[in-house]
């Protein structure tokens, strides 16, 4: 009896894992099927690096920001920006899927709601990771970023944590909102402060205290800081603090996302 029970549980776990795989795989298939989407998602960050990076770089003495060019200094911040915009807007698809019956096809499946949520979140995160990999390759070729095996691995870990948390946040907002317009409003309110107050565009060290405090409250700052430290060797906070904050932030957003997804209204 005992043995039979545990067998059934194993079967149930396998079923959930296959469901998770299906939902993840679908996001990836759809993403890969339209190369224009991938290219489009790379162009905005590249414009920032090339135009904003060159523009601001031209008024800063080379090497004055911790010994690197502004463009290189900007690079980790642009990775974070790519994650923020790409992943948060991933939640928008849930609203669009609500308008047709596509989401129902998933919701009627005999899977746990948390499995569905994780499938979506991992799918969105994988899309984001592909963009980041392309940007890293371009960074190494055209922007003089030097990667080592260790820095590549650490970059992946930091970016993945941020991807999962921001995707979860996007999915949470998408689950609770009914209209794309509402989503746009809420997410703009979320993205701009998260991005501008993260130190992605400027060093935090010389900021006035009030702004420094705001940056410290923003969890995204720790991703920027960690990436800058791993990729460029510029240290702000300690890596231990960075990772602790990111892990807690990821846990909280995943819990929030799962909670919101379970309450999804059709």
């Amino acid at each position: 009896m005992q043995g039979k029970d545990s067998n059934m549980t194993k079967g149930a776990v396998t079923a959930e894992l296959r469901g998770l795989y299906a939902i993840w795989y679908r996001e990836l298939l759809v993403f890969m099927r339209e190369p224009s989407r991938l290219v489009g998602s790379i162009i905005q960050p590249l414009l920032w690096l090339v135009i904003f990076g060159t523009g601001v770089g031209s008024i800063i003495e080379p090497g004055t920001i911790s010994g690197v060019d502004y463009q290189q200094f900007l690079f980790p911040g642009i990775l974070v920006m790519t994650v923020l915009y790409g992943s948060l807007f991933f939640g928008l698809y849930i609203i669009l899927d609500k308008r047709i019956d596509f989401l129902k096809e998933v919701l009627v499946a005999p899977l746990r709601k948390s499995t569905m949520f994780f499938g979506k979140a991992l799918g969105g995160s994988t899309d984001g990771l592909l963009q980041i990999i392309i940007l890293m390759v371009l960074g190494a070729i055209f922007f003089g970023i030097h990667f080592t095996l260790l820095s590549i691995i650490l970059t992946f870990i930091i970016v993945s944590l941020l991807l999962i948390s921001i995707t979860s946040l996007g999915l949470a907002i998408g689950s609770l909102m009914d209209s794309p317009e509402g989503f746009g409003l809420i997410s703009s309110f979320a993205i701009f402060p998260l991005f501008f107050l993260s130190g992605a565009l400027f060093p935090v060290r010389n900021l006035p205290d009030w702004l420094k405090t705001v940056v410290m409250i923003n969890p995204v700052s720790y991703a920027v800081d960690a990436l800058r430290s791993v990729i460029l060797g510029i240290t702000g906070y300690s890596l231990l603090l960075d990772f602790s904050v990111l892990i807690i932030f990821t846990a909280l957003t995943v819990i929030t996302g799962t909670w919101a997804f379970k309450r999804i209204k059709l």
């Binding site: 759809v30 099927r33 047709i100 596509f102 096809e105």
Partner: peptide, 12 residues
Amino acid sequence: FVFQDPSSDDLL
């Protein structure tokens, strides 16, 4: 369930 509105993925 076969839904009233389309529920399959266009790109696939």
